[in-house]
Design a protein around this nucleic acid. Sequence first.
RNA 1: GCGGGGAUGCCGGAGUGGUCAAACGGGACAGGCUUAGGACCUGUUAGCUUAGUGCUUACGUGGGUUCAAAUCCUACUCCCCGCACCA
Length: 881
Amino acid sequence: MVSFNEIAQKWQQKWSESKIFEADESGSKKKYYCLEMFPYPSSMGLHMGHARNYVIGDMFARYKRMNGFNVLYPMGFDSFGLPAENAAIKAKSHPKIFTEKAISNFIKQQKSLGLSYDWSRTLASHKPEYYRWDQWIFLQLFKKGLAYKKTSIVNWCSKCETVLANEQVVNGCCWRHDDTEVDQRELNQWYFKITDYAERLLQDLDKLDWPEDIKQMQSNWIGKSYGAELWFDVVDEAGKKIDTIKTFTTRPDTAYGITYLVLACEHPKVIEYTKGTEYEQKAKDFITEVKKKSIIERTAEGKEKNGMFLGKYFINPFTGEKCPLWIADYALYDYGTGAVMAVPAHDQRDFEFAKKYDLPIKVVINPHAFDLNPEKMTRAFVDEGTLVNSGDFDDSQNRDAIDEITKFAEKKGWGKKTVNYKLRDWLISRQRFWGCPIPIINCEKCEHVPVEEKNLPVKLPENVTFGKGNPLETSPEFVEVICPKCGGPAKRETDTMDTFVDSSWYYMRYCDAQNQDALFDPAKVNYWLPIDLYVGGKEHATGHLIYFRFFTKFLHDLGLVNVEEPAKQLFNQGMLHKEGVVMSKSRGNVVLPEEVSDKYGIDTGRLFLMFVASPEKDMEWDDHGVQGAYRFIRKFYDLIETKVEGDPDEKELSKLNSLIKNVTKYYESLEYNKAIIELMQFTNHFHQIGKISKVSAENLVRLIGPCTPHICEELWEKLGNKPFVSLAEWPKCNESKINPALEAEDVLVEQVRGDILRVLELVKLDPKKISLIISPQWKYGFYGKLKQELEKSRDFKALIGIVMDKDHGQDIPKIIQAVLKDAGKMPTHIFSQDHELKILEAARQKMAEEFKAEIVLVKAEDSKEAKANNAAPGKPAIIIS
RNA sequence: GCGGGGAUGCCGGAGUGGUCAAACGGGACAGGCUUAGGACCUGUUAGCUUAGUGCUUACGUGGGUUCAAAUCCUACUCCCCGCACCA
């Protein structure tokens, strides 16, 4: 028996030696860039869940290659990050050692999956050759004012001992530790000003061939809303103006209904306004109280709202009314201006708050049917309506008033039309060692001084102590530096960058991975970009997939790349489950590729992963199912290895071209499961027949090639072709050869045969001993004719079938049945489908072979001919009259 | 609450107006092969029946459109996944 493992190893070696998957920019082929999100090289290695992800991309890369594209299909490693650092701390070792060991293990595993990567372009983000250019990009951002340091409230994970970006906070918890709620801390941190790109990030979503849900998620995350900024004079008890405060609202039409204003706890004005007053301590206590609560507690919808009066007032310029200024936990400092103009009559949150603290409720919009009574309202009225109590705007429709009142406010200098985004600037500082150092020197005199480009990379020091705080701070050689600007003593920035910075441009580096002088050669990058197909998980929807779009736009603006969007098409693969839950090391339900390939060969594993479910769906790993895939592979191998003979007939050509057509269609749309079904049906058919033409065999091998590349290479060679099927041309469909009627014949023949077998079973007769009579086209006087026939051939035991014209009606079988009983014959089977002679002939042939019996077709109309055809006693025959 | 996606036979999973009791795979059952098991091959696998190409019931639930619905419309139920006091 063949060893699929030996075959796999043989071809993996040949691929590697011949470098056939290495890509360059020369030649006239059209380029195709196929990419999977590069992995974090976990020391756990990879399991079938990862494998599924890679095989999806690999099949497409192989498919495109065979279709004559110049395919770039690289792999690299997102190798900075916390797990390696933590492992190193535990083992009192260095993260680099862990990381590089993990990488070489990954590569080994990926190679044994038969993935067709161009390994000459591999990169790893922890290497100075790579992160040097992280730093370079940082400096460009810094120059443009898009990298800046500010003090603000940030999310802190106590387990990671570092700050997190907004995108890394999931349900109020750390994205790595879903049991650890993030704390709020006020820290001085580095940010990238992604908000400057909010509008473009939103607009360009339209251009992308990405799954709708991802686009929707990004759009929600960016959270654009149109509205107005309204400015209010803040006054003291006596009515003296002390300040102006800005609020953001999407409902300027309710401006006449403002009855109070709330500030978020973090709002700096809270301290300012209460300083030295009786409210100072109370406000501080209130803030402390609020901050004790977790993010979830504070921000979940429907939570009870708390607040307190701040002792100050403001003037609503629309009405001239003096209203109180409050602090409240439901106001978010992060959103808008951190201050909310409250209109309790028309906003549910404001309504609840006003009810609780007995603040006035003023109706300014009435429903069309009746007038609202603020005393009796049980909830805010948030629908459309007509303005009242709104000065000159009374009686206008609130929808129209939004714009009118905004214009009015602008004219009066009370505010302006504005657009607000939920998207926050990207916090990239991390207080950890195993990341890219931020290339900044902090000088007391000169503040943040960028490291000169020629001095890059700022390398991570070797002599650090892990354990407490940021290890970088423990290296005096790293920290203590001279300020490049003033020459005085200064300290190097010890924060490292979020690893999502590394992954924001790696796909560009693949285009020119070995470049020592620049982050890449723009010509090369422009040749390959954009990524034509990007394969990866949904979980990156509002993280990586926004960041890398931002970086692309920034590098575009620098003139380094032509494209504004990194990836044309995005494909989200489904998760692999086992025992009903996602396969993962921590759950302990992983299946390793090695286990599968040891038992069945890796092609079986690949086939199974692609066959069970469509790639974008979650699927369940099933050990029995794998055996099914294995059975198919063996059948397929056996067919091509031992049963290739002859030339294809018309029917085979028709089937073959249909196959090519359908499989191509399914590959193109990444519906591999459907493609494989077609391939199975085709293979099974010819396996059953017991032979296949060489033409079909060669096409079949090419069509399955991307899925099970190793055995296909082997079979391709066995068929007498030069290596490699991986480089062979994709079969072309010849539509003119497709003949559905011809293909349908097989089905009919099967039916006839099935019918006959069924009768044989019914009458418990051995097919070798029975006379078979099939009698079609009885038109007139069939009863008598049939009777005659029956009289003539006494030796038959069963009438197998009668084929009739459709217009004979339903009663004919009954009549025939009666005739048969009359003649004292065995029960029969009758079928009335309007079979063609050809089909009968095919069925006859098939059965003759199957039962090793001589079966002839006889035209019973002519009894001489019947005799001539051996329709004699004891001899099986099919009689046609 | 808002947004997105689902619900198909014992299981996974195709199917999106007729050719559907529904691809393909798994499982189960029966038969063949075999000393036996495995592997392999053949058949069966909604129910009732038959000489049968017949009847009934079925694609989450209830209504509707149509000569015809798993497929279209509508209401509802349940499941998953995002966002979530966003002013």
